[in-house]
Write a protein that binds this DNA or RNA. Sequence first.
DNA 1: ACTGACATGATGTCCAGCCG
DNA 2: CGGCTGGACATCATGTCAGT
Length: 226
Amino acid sequence: MRLEEVFDKLPKLYNKPFSELKLEEDISGFSINKGNTGQFLQALLDMPNNSDLTDFDDGELKTNKTRIDGTPDQTMFITQISRDFDSLFFEDLESNRLLDKISNLLYLPVVKPVGSDPEDWYFLPAHHIDSRNNEVLKNLYLQDFLTIKEKVLDDLENSSDGFIHTANGKYIQIRSKDSMKKDGTYNPIYSQKLGREVSNKNHAFYFKRQFMLAVQSGEIPSNIIL
DNA sequence: ACTGACATGATGTCCAGCCG
DNA sequence: CGGCTGGACATCATGTCAGT
């Protein structure tokens, strides 16, 4: 399914508590908790619920918690680094997995008031952020990636432990993202190219709050789907 | 070929401590 | 004190692999 195909279905989802949406779409059996707002949205949009992990053929669907006033509350996860480290940071690619993944985004803020029941959460209008024919935006993403890459390469040489650490662009960052296994260990990132571990934990790319704020303010161009 | 354990990946959130 | 930093947890889907 292509990203544009869900535009028609979006407006009727805005500002209604999830409990109401569940009844309207007859998916009342769906249980919502912190892990599956995205799946809930996919069900509402009649998106294929099967094995394909990429949300759309040509883009990504993203939800992110906001406060009542619509301002973002957290960074927004993009993708993990893990085994891709060498190709991301040692190959000189015009585009890479990160830039491909964020090239065409459908972003929905979800209001989840502190202490509220998931039944009371609701969506705000979606932003379509398409960099594919926008050189300015494409370049902005690329510059952020290059800023991060520079810090990563610097950390590998100069950080006290030789590991990578949080690296910030203007809108994108990398930072750790991992969980402890039963045996108490994590999932280090190993570089074939360097022949050693480059971190003691997995890391991931995130959009900083600043990105969502810039989208909402119009500083980053997006179409609001109404 | 089936099954179940386990690892990995994707998605999303929580939070303690630090700092301006 | 609010936002950032850095680490961590929760949940679900899928991939892998050994035992049967």
